[in-house]
Every structure is written in structure tokens, then in C-alpha cells.
């Protein structure tokens, strides 16, 4: 193979280029060109006074990057960027693993033979069909302290708590955004895991049963390892989607009316506010670029860990 010249290889695979050409053009226009501009923007002192100049705005070099990383008193940091980063970290971890955990449990429940399994499976997916902006609005309303259904169930119906807690202010805010995201997200994971479960040959379990393995052992030594390709991908999806989560928080807190609070702000909403409400275009772009680099690093680490299972085409 190696001896075949590049030209021949290109010619031989010319159909492949026809196939990817439209995508390539679109991506060039919508991904590549704006991305280069945006990265350049992150080196510019773009704010409310210079935005009219756009790319001709004063060049400030790595100042924004320095500010974001090392200067806690800088303008981009003071709008709660570090809290947002902390929240995003917790949010991403909890949501990613929470959706996999819930999804796995329900998938195991559905991976049995009983009447109506298809109906159950369909009904379980419904919450995934609810749009995120609806999720934000709906749960905002369910979390209300005095009139929300959640506190009503917790206090008035079940009596689990004595006093109605605040959900939309204070540290609970983080849960107020995590729980809806998990609610909205787990069915997708469930379907993927269920598919994985159904691909595991029954014979493995039969053999294990003969060996006298308990249910837990069967899960520990058969199910979990064989599902690894599935949950590895789900972790990958989860990380990307949840770090860049925006809609739920944006719709839940007064529609961008104010600050979602020290525990309700995520990186995307924070940077969005910094960019459009506080007019820090350059710094906002820089923050995005840093986040992007961070994400690529994380994905590379992920790839290193799971490279045996996942054949990301190389």
C-alpha cells in the first residue's frame, strides 16, 4: 500500500471526495472561517467602544488569556467566571454519570422479558423528546419555593422535609439545574445501554449461572465490561454536551434577566452574559478558546483511556 503514490490513491478514492465535498464546503464557511476570526477576536480589545471596528480593533495580544487564567480581579473574571467554572465542573460530572447511572438501571429493568416491554420503553423515552427550553421553563416553575409542585410533594404530601427549601436561590440552585438536565438526558443513554445489553449473548450468563455467580457478580464481570464501548461513548457525549449546556439555565432564570446566582451559573451562560450584556467580546472569545482547548485535551485523555474499545477512525 505504502508504495502507491498519493496521486493514484486520490484518484482511486475520487468518489469519496465527491461524497464529502458539500459537507466540506459548508464546514469551511460556517466552521473554519468564523473560527479563525473568532480566535483572532480573542486577541483584540473588543468592547462596546471598539465593536464598530470589529477586526480592526486594537490588538492586545495574550492579555485576555492572562486575565482569564491568572488575574482574578480582571474584568472577565469578576462576573463570576470562577464560580461558573466550578459549577460547570460539578454539573458536567454529576449529569454525565447521573444520566448513565439512571439509564443503566432502567435499561437493566427493561432488559427482561415481560408483557408490554415495548410500551414501557417508548414511554420512558418521552422526557427526552421534551425540548430543553421547555424543560427550563417547566422546572423553573416546578422549583418555585411557595407554589412549586416539588416543595409541595416534599413537604405537604410526603412530609420528607419540615420546611420548604429554596431551590432557585442559594446552593440548591445547582441541583435545580442538574436534576432537570438528568431528567431530560437519561432516556437517550438508556436506549444506547439497552441496545448494548441486548447484544450480550445469553450464553455468557448461562455459563456464569452454572459457575454459581450471583446476579451482582454477573453484572460485575460480564455486563459492565461488555458494555464498556457504550458507556465510553456516552461519557464522551456527556462531557461535550454538558460543558456547553446553555438552554436550560438560560430559560430557567428569568430568561437572562439577571444573574442565576453563584450556584446556578454555568460557563456558557456566564460567557454569554460577559459577551453580550457586559460587552466584553474579545475576552469572551478568549474564554471560549480556552474552554475549547481544555475540552480537546479532555477528549484526548478520554481517547487514550478508551482507545482499545472505541475505534475512532484514525
Amino acid at each position: 500500500m505504502a508504495t502507491v503514490s498519493l496521486k493514484t490513491r486520490v484518484y482511486k478514492n475520487r468518489h469519496a471526495y465527491y461524497f464529502i465535498l458539500p459537507t466540506l464546503l459548508g464546514m469551511l464557511l460556517i466552521h473554519f472561517v468564523p473560527m479563525v476570526q473568532a480566535v483572532y477576536m480573542s486577541f483584540l480589545g473588543l468592547n462596546q467602544n471598539t465593536i464598530g471596528l470589529y477586526l480592526a480593533a486594537p490588538f492586545v495580544g495574550f492579555e485576555h488569556y492572562k486575565d482569564i487564567l491568572f488575574n482574578p480581579d480582571s474584568l472577565i473574571r469578576i462576573s463570576g467566571l470562577s464560580e461558573a467554572a466550578r459549577n460547570t465542573f460539578i454539573y458536567t460530572i454529576v449529569v454525565t454519570f447521573g444520566t448513565i447511572f439512571v439509564g443503566l438501571i432502567v435499561a437493566l429493568m427493561l432488559n427482561r422479558k415481560f408483557k408490554g416491554v415495548a410500551v414501557f420503553r417508548t414511554l420512558f423515552i418521552l422526557s427526552w423528546v421534551v425540548p430543553q427550553y421547555v424543560t427550563g421553563l417547566l422546572w423553573n416553575f416546578m422549583w418555585q419555593r411557595d407554589v412549586g409542585i416539588v416543595n409541595y410533594i416534599l413537604v405537604n404530601v410526603t412530609g420528607l422535609l419540615n420546611e420548604k427549601p429554596f431551590w432557585l436561590i442559594g446552593p440548591n440552585t445547582l441541583w435545580a439545574i442538574i436534576i432537570p438536565t438528568i431528567w431530560r438526558g437519561w432516556p437517550f443513554n438508556m436506549i444506547m445501554l439497552l441496545a448494548g445489553l441486548q447484544n450480550i449473548p445469553e450464553t455468557y450468563y448461562d455459563a456464569a449461572k452454572i459457575d454459581g455467580a450471583s446476579t451482582l457478580q454477573q453484572f460485575r464481570y460480564i455486563t459492565w465490561p461488555l458494555l464498556k464501548p457504550v458507556w465510553a461513548i456516552l461519557i464522551f457525549f456527556g462531557l461535550i454536551f454538558n460543558v456547553y449546556s446553555f438552554n436550560i439555565v438560560y430559560m430557567m432564570f428569568g430568561l437572562g434577566a439577571g444573574y442565576p446566582g453563584e450556584w446556578g451559573d454555568l460557563l456558557m451562560t456566564n460567557i454569554f452574559r460577559a459577551t453580550f450584556s457586559a460587552w466584553r467580546y474579545g475576552a469572551g472569545a478568549a474564554a471560549c478558546v480556552i474552554l475549547m482547548i481544555l475540552m480537546i485535551t479532555i477528549v484526548l485523555i478520554w481517547d487514550r483511556i478508551f482507545q482499545d474499545e472505541i475505534t475512532v477512525q484514525k
Partner: peptide
């Protein structure tokens, strides 16, 4: 890449 980055460009 965060979508936010593309918005203005």
C-alpha cells in the same frame, strides 16, 4: 468548539 464563539463572526 462552543457555539458561542461563532455567533458574532
Amino acid at each position: 468548539i462552543p457555539m458561542l464563539l461563532f455567533l458574532i463572526p
